[in-house]
């Protein structure tokens, strides 16, 4: 089963009295355990597509199935719970909670998903270890570099053991070297944790790592390139 399936999905934004179509009739299947990159120029609809797949927004038309479950008609609370248990997010600006330590930031999604304390503790330690920040567990985001913050964000995205992780231009605010290191880290984690990563990115380094690559322009998918089938994908 594909972790994400989009059928005839459309999304239109209103700017005053003018309708602006952001996505038009998108039909798409995301393969499991793949590193999928969605690329395209600014305003092409990358972020809108990522938001719809990540259940952060609802489509005006069409249907979205995540892990086989239609999500369009879920209530807001049900959708929140669904995100908490099945989806992870990595943001361009890291979006860590500044008042929480690295440990607490990684732990927070587990609290929302009501994971027992011992499981939480083990998982957070293991993830911080995986991203190489065990020694920074007690640091707040303000005490970490950009690359370290993004590594905390990766650990946070993975903490509820999601089926899919969404990353909206995760290297855009990092220097080239740090960006490469982060991409390599995500690639390693994606393989180790058998999880699907979906990126929106312009970064050639990200696109180079992609299993599947999709081009979007003016709200339409214009090309899909699939690499070698990932393990366990359909």
């Amino acid at each position: 089963m594909h972790p994400i399936v989009l059928k005839n999905v459309g999304k239109t934004y209103k700017l005053d009295a003018v309708d602006i179509p952001a996505l038009i009739d998108i039909n798409l299947e995301i393969r499991g355990n793949c590193f999928t990159v969605i690329s395209g120029p600014s305003g092409s609809g990358k972020t809108t597509l990522l938001n719809l797949m990540g259940c952060l927004d609802r489509p005006d038309q069409g249907e979205i199935l995540i892990a086989g479950q239609p999500v369009k008609d879920l209530s807001d609370d049900a959708l929140s719970d669904f995100r908490a248990r099945n989806l992870g997010f990595i943001f361009q600006n890291f979006n860590l909670l500044p008042v929480l330590t690295a440990y607490e930031n990684v732990e927070y999604p587990l609290l929302l998903a009501q994971v027992p304390a011992k499981v939480r503790r083990d998982r957070v330690r293991s993830l911080l270890d995986a991203v190489g920040l065990s020694d920074k567990a007690g640091h707040r985001p303000g005490q970490l570099s950009g690359g370290q913050r993004q590594r905390v964000a990766i650990a946070r995205a993975l903490s509820p053991e999601p089926k899919v992780v969404f990353a909206d231009e995760p290297t855009a605010n990092l220097d080239s070297e740090t960006g490469s290191a982060i991409i390599a880290l995500m690639r390693r984690i994606q393989r180790d944790h058998h999880v699907s990563f979906i990126f929106s990115s312009h970064d050639p380094k990200v696109m180079l790592q992609a299993d599947d690559s999709m081009q979007i322009r003016d709200g339409r998918i214009i090309s899909v390139e699939r690499g070698a089938a990932a393990e366990g994908s359909a």
């Binding site: 807001d76 609370d77 929140s80 908490a84 927070y108 929302l112 998903a113």
Partner: peptide, 16 residues
Amino acid sequence: TVEIGTLRAIGMRRRG
């Protein structure tokens, strides 16, 4: 505001 968006994205309900 961004923090609120982030918390909602990672699964916090409106009531939360």
